[in-house]
Computed example of a mutant assay.
Amino acid sequence: MIISAGIHIGMLIIIALGMDFSDKPKPQPQVRALAMKAVVVDQKLVAQHVERLKAEKREVARKEKARQDDLERRATEARQQREREQAQIKKLEIERKQKEIETKNALAAAKAAQLKLKQEKEKALQAEEFRKQKEKERQASEEAAKKAEAKLKQEEAAAKKAADERKRKAEADRKRKEDAERKRKAEERERQLQEQMMQDALAEEQAALSQTRNRQVMSEVQRYTSMIRATIQRHLLVDESMRGKTCRVFIRLANDGFVTGTKILSGDSAVCHATQAAINKAGRLPVSSEPNVYNELKEINLTVQPEFN
């Protein structure tokens, strides 16, 4: 309405300015035509102006709506941004708590692992000590076995040497025996002749001395038994394991003391083995030339016990 009033007022002013107030009268038809023309032009301008004002109003409304839409969009974006930030914060908080739990669990696991590692190290050290101890025991056992093996080899070598020596001696003794047997037979024949000649003369004396002789024979048997045992002891190879142990052996002797046979009766195997080796090494044992004494000694059971200095 204000715009319309302003337009009409402008039109009236234009009409007034177009009027001639001089005394000279003007033709009326021309004035009316001009007025009508001015009204038409004015209505057209008013229409254009109104249309321009409507367009401006629509533009203002459009801009306002655009501004409102932009504000609403920004508000929505801001709200969504806040929601995203809150969700991110909540997520970060959850992750932080989870990391704290994981850190605590990791620390607990690390402590448990350290404790387990320490226990395993202690077990490993104990196992290593046990292994070293067993290794020492094994080495000691192997060393003892080597020494025993070496000693056994020495004994076997000594026994072989003694056997070889015995064979050599046996051959020499065989020859010597053959010579001695021929000599003995000759001497025996001579002795028999002498004994035959003396037999009658000594008969009474023999009867008188019988008891005394028997005592002498037994004394000689004991003496020669001790001598036989001493001879075996001299050739006996002993070690500490034989202490307090014995061996009982059967020995058969020739009348010159040569060992013709042996047999282990009982006793410790090591002592018996050493006793057998000592007898073989000796080859010949002390015997009496007296027949009565020899008869008591030609087959004897002897107990041998190693002696230690």
Rank of each mutant, 00 (worst) to 15 (best):
I14H: 12
I14R: 12
I14M: 14
I14D: 15
I15K: 05
I15F: 07
I15S: 09
A16V: 11
L17V: 07
G18T: 10
G18R: 14
M19N: 14
M19L: 14
F21I: 09
F21D: 10
D23A: 10
D23K: 10
K24F: 04
K24Q: 09
P25M: 02
P25F: 06
P25I: 06
P25S: 13
P25N: 10
K26Y: 06
K26G: 07
K26N: 03
P27N: 09
P27V: 06
P27K: 10
P27A: 07
Q28N: 01
P29M: 05
Q30I: 11
Q30L: 13
Q30F: 02
V31F: 03
R32C: 02
R32I: 14
R32G: 05
A33V: 00
L34R: 12
L34M: 06
A35Y: 02
A38H: 00
A38E: 09
V39C: 04
V40Q: 08
V40Y: 01
V41C: 03
V41I: 12
D42W: 08
Q43A: 12
K44P: 00
K44V: 07
K44R: 09
L45F: 10
L45Q: 03
V46F: 08
V46Y: 15
V46E: 05
V46T: 09
V46S: 14
A47R: 07
V50E: 13
V50P: 00
V50Q: 08
R52I: 05
R52N: 12
R52L: 08
R52G: 04
R52F: 04
L53G: 04
L53A: 12
L53Q: 14
L53P: 00
A55R: 08
A55S: 10
A55G: 08
E56Q: 09
K57M: 08
K57P: 05
R58M: 06
E59V: 01
E59C: 01
E59W: 07
V60Q: 15
V60C: 05
R62I: 04
K63D: 05
E64C: 07
K65P: 02
A66G: 06
Q68D: 14
Q68G: 03
D69Q: 15
D70H: 13
D70W: 05
L71C: 13
L71E: 14
E72M: 13
E72Q: 14
R73H: 08
R74P: 01
A75E: 11
A75T: 15
T76P: 01
T76F: 00
E77F: 02
A78F: 03
A78R: 15
R79T: 06
Q80R: 11
R82F: 02
R82N: 01
E83D: 09
E83F: 07
R84Y: 02
R84A: 14
E85A: 14
E85Y: 00
Q86L: 12
A87T: 03
Q88F: 07
I89R: 12
K90G: 05
K90N: 07
K91R: 12
L92H: 04
L92K: 13
L92P: 09
E93L: 09
E93Y: 00
E93Q: 11
I94C: 05
I94S: 01
I94P: 00
I94V: 03
I94W: 02
E95G: 00
R96F: 06
R96K: 08
K97Y: 03
K97D: 13
K99L: 15
E100C: 03
E100R: 04
E102F: 00
E102H: 09
E102I: 05
K104Q: 11
N105I: 04
N105M: 10
A106P: 01
A106Q: 15
L107H: 07
